[in-house]
Design a protein around this nucleic acid. Structure first.
Length: 550
RNA sequence: UGGGUUAUGGUGUAAUGGUAGCACAACAGAUUUUGAUUCUGUUUGUCUAGGUUCGAAUCCUAGUAACCCAACCA
């Protein structure tokens, strides 16, 4: 089967560049700013940049864009590296824009000498004033025509720390009437007497994004510098600087960032959720951060497959969360160990069961290779409250008065009686079982439509289970009226205690589990010797729930 | 009253002048000791209006809509 997958627009560009002999191999880069945690949006960029150099000859660098010491911190660096590795990618070189500060400074001098940059004494308000608007041209700064000597002197003194923060800037001398706002004498350097997490107090002037990013690309000989659409207007400046500086010509290409329904994907908004305590930190399992999703139980493969499926393009988009869940379930179904747990228990008593207890066998996974485990069975069991209906609905084939079901990997039982307390709450279901219907050696000739999971009451352990739902009530919280936080789902986390089968006491943090009929779960790091904590990664698809809705 | 980018089913993405395809979702059915998985089938689309052409999602013209740009953030 030769299924030729069509190329996305970046692959087309690269294949053409390779075919034309423009490059023999390509170099891409992933350029995070160390000022926050990576999220699903970054994951698409990571998969894209690293994926391209996996498909074509070349490599990918990791470069920290650390040009703003005020917001950045070393703490984020390790987390970011860890997330990339977890996703399954390896970078060729690890760089920091701050490693290039000396070179960047020299580039600035070169620009000044060419009469293409000047030191401006205007305040940020004044600069904004003279910038004009998208529809009106700007006006020249009164300092625009300083001599090269004066600019050189002033810039040197900026570096020496003679001036206060904000007192002066270095600007490119381009065109204050340019239709592209970015070309109206953009700022290249600003004064910040701040301690940098890598360069310490060596510098008190720092390059702006536009005077660092493209130059760093160039220094590293990045062939394809891939960024998101909002940087399209920057490309003109990116190219201008490379041309004037006469340095290696990297090229910038832009794609549309991917948005996921029912969540937000901007660092600023995610930070708000954390600082305002809507969630319990960056790695809260409800967060679309890599660390949050990892804790939730997402697999790296499912995220990679998802990114592969949604592809890359240039139009605005909101991808269905269900597509991510599809890839999650697809992967988990193949790899998760099967076990039984009862989340909302009600007691089931087998009135004619005379033995004390017995050991039964149940399969561990989707196929024989996973083998079997032993589960204890006894007279009194916990079953799911929702698996019993006093007055069965149509198409109901679970437990109801007089109805029969199979207890998974055990026996067929028939409901004879049920007991309610004074408030009308069901507290016990009484059944008879059919000894000859034992799983694997059924000679009873009975046929039942439903199979339910259970845990032996005498052998059950208790674990905390955290059930997660989507963080927002609407598909596009950022697109709604008012504050996005108004649309937070108040029921996104439900903590319960559940009865788990004894084998789950040996659960390991790396493994994923399917609690039969209830969903995929994993151990949370909050677990202790005394109390295990499970996160529900995602539910199973539920055809009955759909039937009920109708 | 500027510049830039984008328009294909509910969602995402193909088709590069020649049968509008794929995945998810939805719906119907089969199988099932998980109402899971698996399998089969069905519904739904080219922003609008003109034009070129034997033939247009694709080329041309004119519109329309959405998004981005006026941080000493990246």
């Amino acid at each position: 089967m030769s299924e030729e997958r069509s190329l996305n627009f970046l692959e087309e560009i690269i294949e053409k560049d390779l075919a034309d002999g423009k490059y023999k191999s390509i170099v891409t880069r992933f350029p995070p700013e160390p000022n926050g945690y990576l999220h699903m949006g970054h994951a698409t960029s990571i998969c894209l940049n690293f994926g391209l150099t996996k498909k074509y000859p070349g490599y990918t660098n990791l470069r920290f864009d650390d040009t703003n010491p005020v917001t950045e911190d070393i703490e984020y660096v390790e987390n970011i590296k860890n997330d990339i590795k977890w996703l399954g990618f390896e970078w060729k070189n690890e760089h920091y824009a701050s490693d290039y500060f000396e070179t960047l400074y020299d580039y600035a001098i070169a620009l000044i000498k060419k009469g293409l940059a000047y030191v401006d004494d205007l305040s940020s308000e004044e600069i904004a004033q003279l910038k004009g608007t998208p529809t009106e041209p700007g006006k020249d700064s009164p300092f625009r025509n300083r001599s090269v000597e004066e600019n050189l002197d002033l810039f040197e003194r900026m570096k020496q720390g003679e001036f206060a923060d904000g007192a002066r800037t270095l600007r490119a001398k381009i065109d204050m009437a340019h239709p592209n706002m970015l070309m109206r004498d953009p700022l290249l350097y600003r004064i910040k007497h701040a301690h940098h997490h890598r360069t310490g107090d060596t510098w008190c002037i720092y390059p702006m994004y536009d005077f660092a990013h493209g130059q760093s690309d160039s220094i590293e000989h990045i062939t394809h510098s891939i960024c998101t659409l909002e940087f399209v207007p920057h490309r003109e400046l990116y190219d201008w600087l490379i041309e004037k500086l006469e340095i290696y010509p990297s090229h910038q290409y832009e794609f549309a960032r991917r948005n996921l329904s029912y969540t937000v994907m901007s660092k600023r908004k995610l930070l708000q959720l954390v600082t305002d305590k809507y969630v319990n930190g960056w790695d809260d399992p409800r967060m679309p951060t890599i660390s949050g999703m990892r804790r939730r139980g997402f697999t790296a493969a499912s995220i990679r497959n998802f990114c592969e499926t949604i592809g890359v393009a240039k139009r605005e988009n909101i991808v269905d969360f269900s597509l991510l869940e599809f890839h999650l379930r697809e992967d988990l179904n193949k790899t998760a160990l099967r076990a039984m747990a009862v989340l909302d228990p009600v007691k089931l008593v087998i009135t004619n069961y005379t033995g004390g207890s017995e050991d039964l066998q149940s399969e561990n996974g989707p196929d024989e290779a996973y083998g079997h485990r032993t589960i204890p069975f006894s007279k009194e069991l916990w079953i799911e409250r929702e698996d019993f209906m006093e007055v069965p609905a149509k198409k109901w084939f679970r437990l109801a008065p007089g109805a029969m079901v199979r207890l998974k990997s055990a026996y067929i039982v028939r409901c004879d009686h049920f007991i309610k307390d004074e408030n009308g709450i069901l507290i016990e279901i009484q059944c008879t079982y059919f000894p000859e219907s034992k799983s694997g050696q059924d000679t009873s000739g009975l046929h039942v439509k439903g199979t339910i999971h259970w845990v032996s009451a005498a052998h059950a352990a208790i674990a905390e289970v955290r059930l997660y739902d989507r963080l927002f009530k609407v598909e596009d919280p950022s697109g709604e009226e008012g504050d996005f936080k108004d649309y937070i789902n108040p029921n996104s986390l439900q903590v319960i205690n559940a009865f788990i089968e004894p084998s789950l006491l040996l659960a390991s943090p790396e493994k994923r589990y399917q609690f039969l009929r209830k969903g995929y779960f994993c151990l949370d790091p909050d677990s202790t010797e005394k109390k295990l904590v499970f996160n529900r990664t995602v539910t199973l698809k539920d055809a009955w729930a759909k039937e009920v809705k109708k």
